[in-house]
Computed example of a mutant assay.
Amino acid sequence: MELRHLRYFCVVAEELNLTCAAERLHMSQPPLSRQIKQLEHEVGAELFERGSRGLRLTTTGQFFRQHAIQILEKVDATLESTRRMARSKRVMFGIGFVPSVFYGQLPLLVRELRQKDNVELSLAELTTVQQIQALKAGRIDMGFGRLRIDDPDVEQEVLFEEPVMAALPAGHPLEGTTPTLEQLSHYPLILFPAKPRPSMADMMLGLFRRQGLKVEVVQEANELQTALGLVASDIGITLVPEQVRRVQRDGIVYTYLADKHITSPVICSRRRGEKPSEIMQDANRILEVLVENRRSGRYP
């Protein structure tokens, strides 16, 4: 399927008349009719009802039209953004991140890079596994996650380790304490993200498993904010990296664990063996300062 098929379809769907649609598209009617039939064959469904009074969209056609319009608008917007970038000589720099790292230093990195006149930033919320794929495909240039993944095309740098905390419903029996994993294992656990895996969810389960503890997983959530909402609803508890405590919401309290050695890494991923661009060098310099501030306690 080509973009022209979608454009032809949208014009015909608007006109509901092949002759008028062909005039708008500056083509004759027979080729347009063939293109629409070819599209229907590829979709595997009739998009138009053909009658003596003209054309009508089928239910399938109405659904297809909504999505075709969205696709074409996205393509047009992307083309326009690309042209603007070319005219302004700006360079695209993509950053992927897991949500739990966006409450610490990452917004400061983004803010400083945005101040540079020659940079067009693209941010994408991705799991660490998705970041590796995006790096190899060239969709992003730098990723921030929490999983160590062995891939010959990607290098990973552990920026720092941060404590893991328990997020509890307000009024929970363990509120105000520094609980052990054994104590936490007696309460229903909320995991996130539910998919794709491996993820932070597997890290949480691994903490209990290594101590021979069994836990009851009462709910899985795809997003951090959903998991916290479930905690606030008293569905269960969850484990989060320290940065997440900056998310203040009613019904949730955060507490450090008794074992201070239980940590979660913040890992920066980049393409291996690639000569750093000017923008990458700037990002690395900014990141070095931010990480040192974090390690020294100036930005807890």
Rank of each mutant, 00 (worst) to 15 (best):
H5N: 13
L126C: 06
K136H: 02
D141K: 00
R84K: 15
G171W: 03
V240Q: 07
V217E: 11
Q70L: 12
Q133N: 07
F208W: 06
E288Y: 09
K214T: 13
Y299K: 07
E49T: 13
V154T: 04
D76I: 10
H5E: 15
V215I: 06
L25H: 07
A194E: 14
E162D: 06
C10I: 09
L147P: 02
E274G: 02
D117Q: 15
L47F: 07
G297Q: 02
R87M: 13
K37P: 03
T127S: 15
Q70A: 14
V154I: 14
A68I: 01
A166W: 02
L184G: 02
A45S: 09
L189E: 00
R83Y: 11
V119I: 15
N222W: 08
V253L: 02
L147K: 02
E161I: 00
G229D: 12
V231A: 02
A22Y: 05
Q105L: 12
V154M: 05
I190Y: 11
D234S: 15
E125K: 09
L79A: 04
E46F: 07
A227P: 03
V110C: 07
G54V: 04
R87A: 15
T178P: 00
L207M: 14
Q131P: 01
E14Q: 09
G54F: 06
V291Q: 04
P169Y: 01
H26Q: 14
F97R: 01
E15W: 03
K275F: 05
R270G: 02
V247E: 09
Q105Y: 12
E175W: 05
R295S: 04
P300G: 05
K116F: 07
A201F: 08
R83Q: 13
E292V: 06
H41V: 06
M203H: 07
A77P: 13
V119N: 07
L16R: 10
F102E: 13
D76F: 08
P265N: 09
Q131K: 12
K89T: 08
R285H: 13
R53P: 01
L230Q: 06
E23I: 12
V217H: 11
L224E: 01
Q62F: 02
Y8I: 07
S199L: 02
D259F: 00
R246A: 12
E292D: 15
Q70H: 14
L290A: 10
R139P: 01
T127W: 02
P107H: 05
I286S: 07
S269T: 12
P276C: 13
F102T: 11
Q70R: 14
R197M: 14
Y103V: 03
A134W: 01
L6P: 11
G236E: 07
D259Q: 00
V253G: 01
H261I: 00
E242V: 00
E120I: 08
G273P: 00
A13W: 01
T78E: 10
A170E: 15
E120C: 11
Y256D: 03
N284E: 15
E162T: 03
R209K: 12
S233T: 01
Y103T: 10
Y256H: 07
L191D: 05
M280L: 15
F64E: 00
S52G: 11
D250F: 09
V218S: 12
D151Q: 10
A194L: 08
P193W: 13
V266G: 04
N284H: 11
